[in-house]
Design a protein around this nucleic acid. Structure first.
Length: 565
RNA sequence: GCGCCCGUAGCUCAGUCAGGAUAGAGCGUUGGCCUGCGGAGCCAAAGGUCCUGGGUUCAAAUCCCAGCGGGCGCGCCA
């Protein structure tokens, strides 16, 4: 139980008691049931620490004005050493200003729990899965994949923080008979032969990127002309496999540089080879969920909320992507996850109702809570005020490698998580590498480094407060900036919980910026290492709590928290 | 045509799911602050038809309906 939660719940209970007492004394009409009121953080500092809307919600059933009700409740509030003062405000809010006790407890909590500060046991160790990036092995990962990666990994971190056991999974869309994989293998084959001096045509719809030539060169270096004399079928097959393996290895490597390590890599081809796709199709048939039409096999997804039925086996006899994806989700289900999260680009949003329909049809979906899909919108890069244009046709793409080279891992991840997933994202490359306050990544990391620097300075000077901050008297923190900072730090566990349950890391990113803001504010006004040892110790405790909070928050986002910059 | 996402300050966006107070933040702009722990900083000001129009409500950026604008999807591609 965090201090913030505890304070909130205590107020909640006090309000309930007060209403009952007011009814008993006849100040208010008697109701058998109370409405679902809230105790929340008010929008402005001067309204106090917490506010409740209970009086306004009671106005209708009680046939009295909210102000009148609020007054009656305030009069009947039981005494509590939590509350400093209570105010009634138009149109009927009850505002509480609390004593600083809970804030002090929160600071101590941060210092004591250290890297566990902000963590919860909500997940009770249940197993969940987050699947993300899952690109076609036909080329380098791009900035869109980077957003998916940053999101997926941060969401995984957040779910871990609230107590789930999380597996990160990458689904390789490597089906060799798929048009794209075939095409890619053929492109690679053509480049290989061309490098060896053969005059072969490049496939018309082939992958024209420079990276294909580079891969071909690698193969020439490793295998020489060993594939020239194979039969065309054999050679093609060989190249398709080689292409897949090489690209998957590259993906793995660049994702590691991006700070992402997966627990599982699942191959779509394997779903076929192991018979899972065929079994899935049989299962759908058995359950009478399919019908044949126009030479293809369809699934009745419309019976389960989809807009149109979907083909699962083509006229050619080849199963569709939808079929293997059902097989894939059945495989996920077999592994007994409490729920699974899929991170997809917004261009896949048409796939969402299909998958939900299929899972409902198979009885896997329990009230829409098992498969959680997070869709993210496109990312654009902006440089000198204009969009960095991408032309896939010309083979010019901005890859994740490029992004990492230009702005580095921390800035990439931070910016990818600064907005909610379902909003378009512009990343200003000039801003992202700027080492100044304008750049939020630096601003936040700098705040952390500054906390560390204060401790370094204290050690250097052997400041006597250093050994005392663990038992500091936090009552000495009386400045408004100190209180504001404490209040924000106290919110951290709830922010973690909320961003986790909403699968919304950007809430945490925004929180980081706020902390940095208030910390710099504090730093500017309050000297930490001064002559008053007791005061210094108290402020050092606040700095430590800030450091812990920032470090934990940044780590959840996958951004490093440097001790010096 | 149908479906999904977005529309909030000059710019980029929080806030919308769970309706509450004078709608917030960062950047930019303007003006100010610094001899001590990192100026890689701080303060202040200006800046808004919350896309439009209806509806529900004591109360709407938030919920409902109808439009408008932008993006995406609607394939026996993945």
């Amino acid at each position: 139980m965090t201090q913030m939660r505890q304070a909130r719940e205590e107020l909640f209970a006090l309000l309930e008691q007060a209403v009952k007492e007011a009814m008993r004394r006849g100040f208010l009409p008697t109701l058998t049931e109370l409405p679902n009121f809230v105790v929340e953080t008010p929008p402005q500092e001067e309204f106090g620490d917490f506010a409740s809307n209970i009086a306004m919600l009671l106005a209708r059933p009680m046939q009295k004005s909210p102000m009148e009700i609020a007054n009656a409740i305030a009069q009947c509030l039981p005494k509590s050493d939590l509350i400093e003062s209570v105010e009634i405000a138009q149109p009927g809010f009850i505002n509480f200003r609390l004593t600083n006790l809970w804030l002090h407890e929160a600071i101590k909590e941060a210092i004591e729990r250290d890297e566990k500060f902000g963590h919860w046991q909500i997940g009770q160790g249940k197993k969940v899965q987050v699947e993300f990036v899952s690109a076609n092995p036909t080329g380098p990962l791009q900035i869109g994949n980077a957003r998916g990666g940053a999101l997926g990994d941060a969401i995984a971190n957040l779910l871990e923080a609230v107590g789930y056991k999380v597996e990160r999974e990458y689904y390789i869309n490597d089906v060799t008979m798929s048009t794209q994989v075939q095409n890619f293998g053929e492109s690679l084959e053509a480049r290989y032969l061309q490098l060896l001096g053969y005059d072969v045509p490049f496939p018309e719809e082939g992958y024209k990127g420079e990276y294909v030539i580079e891969l071909a060169r690698e193969i020439v270096n490793e295998y020489g002309d060993a594939f020239v004399n194979l039969s065309p079928e054999e050679r093609r097959q060989k190249f398709i496999t080689l292409a897949r393996d090489k690209i998957v290895a590259q993906h793995k490597s660049v994702l590691e540089r991006f700070g992402i390590t997966y627990d599982n890599w699942v191959s779509e081809q394997w779903l076929y080879d192991s018979g899972r796709v065929a079994k899935t199709i049989d299962l759908l048939k058995q359950r009478n969920l399919t019908y044949e039409a126009e030479g293809a096999l369809w699934m009745r997804t419309t019976d389960f909320g989809d807009l149109k039925d979907e083909v699962i086996v083509r006229r050619t006899g080849a199963p569709t992507y939808f079929a293997s994806d059902i097989a894939y989700h059945l495989y996920k289900h077999e592994r007994e996850y409490e729920f699974v999260v899929d991170i997809w680009g917004a261009d896949h949003h048409g796939h969402v109702p299909r998958m939900h329909a299929a899972l409902r049809a198979l009885g896997i979906e329990r009230n829409g809570e098992w498969l959680k899909v997070v869709l993210y919108q496109l990312v654009r890069l902006v440089k000198e005020g204009s969009t960095v244009r991408l032309s896939k046709r010309a083979g010019e793409i901005v890859s994740l490698d490029d992004l990492l080279e230009w702005i580095g891992k921390d800035a990439s991840r931070f910016f990818m998580l600064i907005r909610s997933a379902d909003t378009h994202l512009d990343i200003d490359l000039d801003l992202a590498i700027k080492q100044s306050q304008e750049n939020p990544v630096y601003y936040v990391q700098y705040a952390h480094a500054r906390c560390c620097s204060i401790f370094r300075e204290a050690e250097k000077r052997q400041h006597p407060s250093l050994s005392k901050y663990n038992q500091a008297d936090l009552n000495l923190l009386i400045e408004e900036v100190e209180r504001r900072l404490m209040k924000l730090l106290a919110q951290f566990p709830e922010v973690v919980k909320e961003s986790s349950l909403k699968l919304s890391p950007h809430l945490l990113t925004q929180f980081c910026i706020q902390i940095a803001d208030r910390f710099h504010d504090f730093y500017e006004r309050c000297r930490v290492l001064g002559e008053d040892v007791q005061l210094s110790a108290a402020r050092l405790a606040l700095v430590k709590a800030t450091q812990v909070t920032l470090r934990n928050a940044l780590n959840l986002l996958g951004v490093s928290a440097p001790e010096a910059m």
